[in-house]
Design a protein around this nucleic acid. Structure first.
Lengths: 146, 146
DNA sequence: ATCATTGCAAACTGTTTGCATCAAG
DNA sequence: CTTGATGCAAACAGTTTGCAATGAT
C-alpha cells in the first residue's frame, strides 16, 4: 500500500517534468530520496545491484543526467573531482571532510550567519556580474574523524 | 637583467619548498603568475608549446601536482568538472560564468559582505565539525556575456 | 503501434604509470 | 657522481556513444 503510493509519487514527479516512469528512474530517485546521500554513478550502480535490481551502468549515467537536467537531482564534484549526485535539490551548502570524504548538507536556514543576498548584490554592483547562485563550500574534519 | 632576476625568483620559491629548479617548473609557475588565469593541464600545455617551449604533457600533469602539493598552486574543478590551476594561492572565491566559462577571482577583502569567521564558528558550534576553510562559489553571467 | 528507454560493448577523454634518458646539485 | 626530473608510450578510469532489443504510453 505504502509501496503503491510511493510508486505513484515517482510517477507523478516524473510526469511533472515530462519524463516517462521507468524502473531504473524510480530506483535512482528512491535511492537518492534521503538526505546526506551523495553517491558517484558507480557507487549508485553498485548499491542498486546489491539491492538485487538489474540495471546497467550506462543507464545509471544516462538517467542521472536526464534527472539532473529535469531539475530532480543536483550534480556536483567532490574534492577529489568525482561526480556526485544529490536528491536534495533545494539550494544548500556542503561540508567536505578532508579525512574520510564524508559530505554533509547545510541548509541556508540552518546557517543564518551567511546571507546570500548582500553578497549577490555586492558582486553585481561592483563586479558587474549577474549572480544566479552563491554557495558555500567548506572543508574540514567531521565529528567522527576528530 | 629582469630576466635573470625572475629566474632567481623562481629558483628561490622552489628551493623554499624543497624542489629543484627546472625549466618546466619555471615555465609553469611563470605562466600561472598572473591573476585570473585558470588553465586546465591541456590548456597550459598548449600555451607553453605555442610559446615555443618544448615540454611533455605528462610533465605538465606531474608538475602541476607537485607544485600544488608544495602549496605553490591551487587546484579546483570548474562547473564542467575540468581540473583547473590557479597560481594565486591566497584564500579567495570564484565567480563562474555559465555562458562563456570565464572564471574570476574574488578576494575576501573585496567582499566584506561575506565574513568567513562567524560562519566557521557557527558550523563548529552546531555541527561539531572543525572547519578549515569556507569558500564561496558563485555562478552567474559575466559582464561581457550580458 | 510508436517512440522513448535500456543495456551491452566499443569508443573516447583526461589522467597516471613505467621506464630509459637527461639534468641539477 | 648521485639522485631527482623529463617525456614518450602504454595503461587506466570515468564517461559517452552506437545500436539492437525492450518497455511505456
Amino acid at each position: 500500500m505504502a509501496r503503491i503510493k510511493e510508486r505513484e509519487n515517482y510517477r507523478l514527479r516524473l510526469k511533472a517534468v515530462g519524463l516517462r516512469h521507468t524502473l531504473p528512474r524510480e530506483r535512482i530517485l528512491a535511492y537518492l530520496d534521503r538526505k546526506n546521500v551523495h553517491p558517484t554513478p558507480e557507487e549508485l550502480y553498485q548499491a542498486l545491484k546489491k539491492k538485487g535490481f538489474a540495471i546497467g551502468l550506462s543507464t545509471v549515467y544516462l538517467n542521472l543526467q536526464v534527472l539532473r537536467d529535469a531539475g530532480l537531482l543536483w550534480e556536483f564534484k567532490d574534492q577529489k573531482g568525482n561526480t556526485r549526485y544529490d536528491g536534495f535539490t533545494e539550494r544548500h551548502h556542503h561540508l567536505f571532510c578532508l579525512q574520510c570524504g564524508r559530505i554533509e548538507d547545510v541548509l541556508p536556514r540552518d546557517l543564518p550567519e551567511f546571507e546570500a543576498e548582500p553578497v549577490r548584490k555586492a558582486i553585481e554592483g561592483r563586479n558587474g556580474w549577474f549572480v544566479e547562485d552563491a554557495r558555500l563550500e567548506m572543508r574540514g574534519v567531521c565529528p567522527a574523524c576528530q
